[in-house]
């Protein structure tokens, strides 16, 4: 079962990468980019076949390792 875990910097947490990308877009001539937030996407392929169990496992993985919940939020999606 394939799972997509999206990890993003929490609102209010400084995201210097996002800011640099925003500035780079501006210098390329893309006007009006008000904010860029840079996160990560992790695609997991789990042997689990039960969607609810797979989701629960992925959430546990995200809490323990994939995201640092001090600074990041995450969402889990079956794909």
């Amino acid at each position: 079962m394939k799972i997509k875990v999206t990890v993003m910097p929490k609102p209010g947490v400084l995201d210097p990468q996002g800011r640099a990308i925003q500035q780079a877009l501006g210098s390329l001539g893309f006007a009006g980019v008000q904010e860029v937030r840079a996160g990560k996407v992790l695609l997991l392929d789990l042997a689990e076949t039960d969607p609810a169990a797979a989701r629960a496992t992925a959430e546990a993985m995200a809490r323990q390792l994939l995201a640092n919940t001090v600074i990041e939020s995450f969402s889990v999606e079956l794909v």
Partner: peptide, 17 residues
């Protein structure tokens, strides 16, 4: 130590990149 939860908080990228 922060990642292990032995100290609070986290270290982000330097503000000036």
């Amino acid at each position: 130590l922060c990642e292990a939860g032995l100290l609070p908080g986290a270290l982000l990228k330097n503000a000036a990149l």
